[in-house]
Design a protein around this nucleic acid. Sequence first.
DNA 1: GCAAGGACTGAATGGTGGTTCACTTCTTGG
DNA 2: CCAAGAAGTGAACCACCATTCAGTCCTTGC
Lengths: 199, 199
Amino acid sequence: MAYRSTERVKARLSASRQRIITAALEIMAGHGYAGCSVAAVAERAGVATGTVYRHFPTKADLFAEVFRTASQREVDAVARAAAQRTTVAAQMAAVVETFAGRALQSPRLAYALLAEPVDPAVDAERLTFRRAYADLIAGHVAAGVASGELPAQDPELTATALVGALAEAMVGPLAAGVAGPGTIPDLIRFIHRALGVSP
Amino acid sequence: MAYRSTERVKARLSASRQRIITAALEIMAGHGYAGCSVAAVAERAGVATGTVYRHFPTKADLFAEVFRTASQREVDAVARAAAQRTTVAAQMAAVVETFAGRALQSPRLAYALLAEPVDPAVDAERLTFRRAYADLIAGHVAAGVASGELPAQDPELTATALVGALAEAMVGPLAAGVAGPGTIPDLIRFIHRALGVSP
DNA sequence: GCAAGGACTGAATGGTGGTTCACTTCTTGG
DNA sequence: CCAAGAAGTGAACCACCATTCAGTCCTTGC
């Protein structure tokens, strides 16, 4: 045997794979999923289209990973912001502010992640994205119920419904490019009421 | 001139057009939007594919109308159910029960109308669907705020968020085919809290 | 019955874009 | 430097389907 993959090659492969994912993310942020042909991603990553298929079996697999990466980043940011607060009320305010703030910062990407039409296989990844948010929120809600800060309720259902409310409330502003100044505070008030935070 | 379209022909044309819409709806209810090739719709309607294009300029136009028809039916049913109640609390309970009940009755269709990936042009029609629900809810909320049954709030934002909550809460059950027995009552409680209905 | 003109047909067309693969280039151990 | 084998290339391929259109069938008023 005259060839065995070495560390240096492994690193280059991994870097190449990463560049493809990054390129896909950048195109999504600029032109949405609709602008993400495999050829365009490859060109931006500086590789040939065929090379994309050395790293991902299908386009759907590539974008499943792209969605996973982007989602993780968003969920982490929101989780980090919430973790710095002590009451559930403050935690949920942080969730809304962070989620909405970041979405409005990159509206095209947020739209792609939240609502843009995509292949069914990629759509499935979106479910886990929303699920991750729901889990995050459900954790805080359950803690709030346990501590008595919130009234008794099903944390899962509350969290799911809140994720839907948050996403739906952002679709309009994302399409418009900006949110009215009252939107975020109003949304926080809505969510506090929905949680049963005592006024 | 030896030919002028007569009533009988007009009626046949209109019936044919209607059959195409109905066929599309039936296929959506059975196999989702994904199963709705023009050829499949035409076959089910008992016409040739070309005939579809004598009634609709493009597939997107056909499905815009299909979505509009189906949506209107849903919104009307929900509006009718809500109109029979007198308090906002009862009206919103009726909204949830009717919306969720009907969705669970035809889960595939509900999924197609709510969340399935579709052409952007058809997706736009979906926005008006959600908008119609939001307007319906916003009307009741505004009345409730005016009468003092609900605390001060932006009825538009509340309604939008509630539509999102409702839709999101249904996606899981729709995928599963059934909702847990507590889902609908819990959802009603959630929505009552979110509206600020006094307990 | 017949001419005019619309309705209907469905096989052929065409555009799109994901996927492949024969070939080239690079990497490795000896 | 060489042979073996992997990585990279990108033009060609192909499947899928919406859309078209030349030919056929119907309907109408005379």
